[in-house]
Write a protein that binds this DNA or RNA. Sequence first.
DNA 1: CGGATCGTTGATCAACTTCAACGGTCGTGG
DNA 2: CCACGACCGTTGAAGTTGATCAACGATCCG
Lengths: 192, 192
Amino acid sequence: MTTNTLLTHIHQKVPLTEADNSLILPYFTPKLLRRRQYLLQEGAICTHLSFVAKGLVKAFNIDEKGIEHISLFGSEGWWISDFGSFVNAVPGMLNIDAIEDTELLMISRENYEELLQKIPKMERYFRILYQNSLVTKDKRLISSITDSAEEKYLGFANNFPQIVQRLPQNLIASYLGLAPETISRIRKRQAK
Amino acid sequence: MTTNTLLTHIHQKVPLTEADNSLILPYFTPKLLRRRQYLLQEGAICTHLSFVAKGLVKAFNIDEKGIEHISLFGSEGWWISDFGSFVNAVPGMLNIDAIEDTELLMISRENYEELLQKIPKMERYFRILYQNSLVTKDKRLISSITDSAEEKYLGFANNFPQIVQRLPQNLIASYLGLAPETISRIRKRQAK
DNA sequence: CGGATCGTTGATCAACTTCAACGGTCGTGG
DNA sequence: CCACGACCGTTGAAGTTGATCAACGATCCG
């Protein structure tokens, strides 16, 4: 059951009763995404937060040279959106599409706001979620400024061992801001 | 009054009554920091969140070559901490010190947790605060991966016009992950 | 006055990108 | 079921951006 993934995930941060569960679930709608299917395209307003129950998606922007820069992967247990666009109800520059067939649970902005108002536990859940996201984003930012190409790659492989295996190297390269060839050479060096 | 800065700041996100004000303030303690004075050093556990009521501070880590990498500036209206260390009560790798004489309002982890539990408006305030922080961090991350040195500098100067003027160029360089000489050359080019 | 701090400029250097060519694998349509 | 194209990774060579190194000048402040 895909909703269980979500409830378990919330429960890890905020204890839920059965009553809570049945209050929360109606706010979400499930959605299936086929490999390569878009969830969001540049210029659109991001109207939903999406919880990835199963599968793998990527969020990316495209620069003036037409090159994709992946800012985020989302696999089981991760939330994905163009957060800036969602929060401010403003057109965004992110695209989101599926790397694997994936199952999502989505919540609209209106439902999100209502959920936070009506169920304080959810306000708390998202506060904690965002708190943790900030910590990991801080680390990534420091890494992107401080680390060499090799350190970036090893750090990523270390932090996301399960995801690395599901990703082609060129997507990892895009996420790390490196050329695909650089990843290839780093791996070769590492093989020794 | 330095506490007004804080209350105003909270009020912008969550309406407060006079009663709220007097509930909230006791959780905070003021602190003065002289220029160059440390608020936090590498290896210590960050025990407080600090709201900058006046002045300017920087948070930075030091790499194995002894080079400072600034991850965050804090001026009036910003919160500063080693967030990872604070949240997980774990020794951190950030240093924080004052660039100008500054006035802080600090809250301890215990008080923070209690404040969130007792005053739902504050749970909401921090959820919104973190939400916004995530949006700006996302932008900075994309910039650090996508942009050239010149674009990074111009983006920073554009986003923080007031702060740029208060900062020596070498600190801006450190924040952007550039060499000070590079900033100097960019500025020269821009002067035309 | 004298040291510390900051910015500038030029020369060299290193890391990583870009470009190009090639080989392997997979999946889809004929 | 095979063949072709898309996609992905590899390797080598050349090019570029920005870092590093070094010397110098200016300003500020104790």
